[in-house]
């Protein structure tokens, strides 16, 4: 610090005081910038979702107000009730006409498909999670801990399958699934989602297994464990965080997938939630509040999972970043 000579005590004290004021001003300024930036960030990230939730709580009369009611004046759960009771009601042209628009009566004729679709989505996502573990864990263990020819080539080869866009695979996928006679069955989705999700799962698991010491492997093998036992008894328990990440990614990817489901499913027997929700958006006579409630229903499970398991998701995604 140039300027005041240290021999002059008052000048030194003044300099210290000034520096302190400056740093305090700097701190306040930094705090203010961070606050404003945080608010902008929150607004950008959450406002669209909050608006979706807010409009799902409005009835048909309120939702068409100009300008919109940002916060519902008469919040109602009717739209959600309509989803969960749609099965008992038969919607015909007459009942739709007769329904009071104010009560959110314009529910679509396919509304009763929502709950079965929710069930289908759950079944598919859970099956894909289980298969990801069954298929992914052994191969990831082998690639991380067993030395064999073509090891690194196979890791890159597996990832390379994901570079091809899904949309470019729809034609062969469709013919393949049709020839197996699996069109309009949940199996068509389970098989293709497995192929779509498993490369990333293997990648996360290989990264994680590689970070575990090889000595464990040797020790277990000296103690007489087979490869399979070493994997299930030693590595799998230690790799729990990466297993959680893999399960989450597989679940979310399956829950959210749209394109393949659009190709393979034709009836409510196999249609998943995204398909039903998408079918509402193309029908202009359907109440907006009802569509929004269906949208909220589709986002609640994945968002909850993401918030609960945030740590695992971020570590899983960054495992990819550090390696890639």
């Amino acid at each position: 610090m140039a300027g005041p000579s240290m021999a002059d005590p008052t000048a030194a004290a003044r300099a210290v005081r000034q520096a302190r004021i400056r740093s305090r001003a700097g701190r306040v300024g930094r705090g203010l910038i961070l606050l404003v930036a945080s608010l902008v960030f929150l607004g950008y990230t959450l406002a669209p979702v909050v608006w979706l939730v807010s409009s799902s709580l409005q009835n048909e009369r309120e939702i068409v107000s100009k300008p919109p009611h940002w916060i519902p004046h008469e919040p109602t759960l009717e739209n959600f009730a309509a989803i969960f009771t749609a099965r008992e009601k038969t919607v015909t042209y007459e009942t739709r006409r007769a329904a009071d628009p104010a009560s959110g009566g314009f529910i679509p004729s396919t509304a009763s498909n929502l709950l079965p679709a929710l069930g289908n989505s759950l079944i598919v996502a859970c099956a894909v999670v289980v298969l990801n573990l069954l298929v992914g864990v052994p191969s990831a263990y082998a690639m991380a801990k067993i030395r064999f020819r073509g090891r690194s080539a196979s890791i890159y080869g597996i990832l390379a399958t994901r570079v091809i866009p899904d949309i470019a695979l729809v034609v062969p996928f469709f013919l393949f699934i049709r020839n197996l006679g699996l069109l309009d069955s949940l199996w068509s989705l389970i098989i293709t989602y497995l192929a779509v999700t498993v490369p990333f799962s293997v990648f996360i698991l290989v990264s994680y297994f590689e970070s575990l010491p090889d000595e464990l492997d040797k020790a277990a093998r000296v103690d007489g464990c087979s490869r399979w036992q070493t994997m299930t008894k030693v590595y799998v328990p230690l790799a729990l965080p990466s297993l959680v990440a893999v399960m989450l990614f597989a679940f979310l990817a399956s829950w959210n997938e749209f394109l393949l489901a659009l190709m393979f499913t034709q009836t409510p027997k196999s249609q998943t939630l995204p398909i039903i929700v998408a079918s509402f958006t193309s029908d202009f006579t359907i109440s907006f509040s009802f569509i929004n409630a269906a949208g909220v229903l589709a986002i609640v499970p994945p968002v909850l999972l993401a918030l609960i398991f945030e740590r695992y998701i971020v570590s899983g995604l960054t495992a990819g970043a550090v390696k890639g």
Partner: peptide, 14 residues
């Protein structure tokens, strides 16, 4: 993570 987790279909509808 909220936008990341939301299905594209729900994002589109929103």
């Amino acid at each position: 993570l909220v936008p990341w987790a939301i299905p594209y279909v729900a994002n589109a509808l929103m």
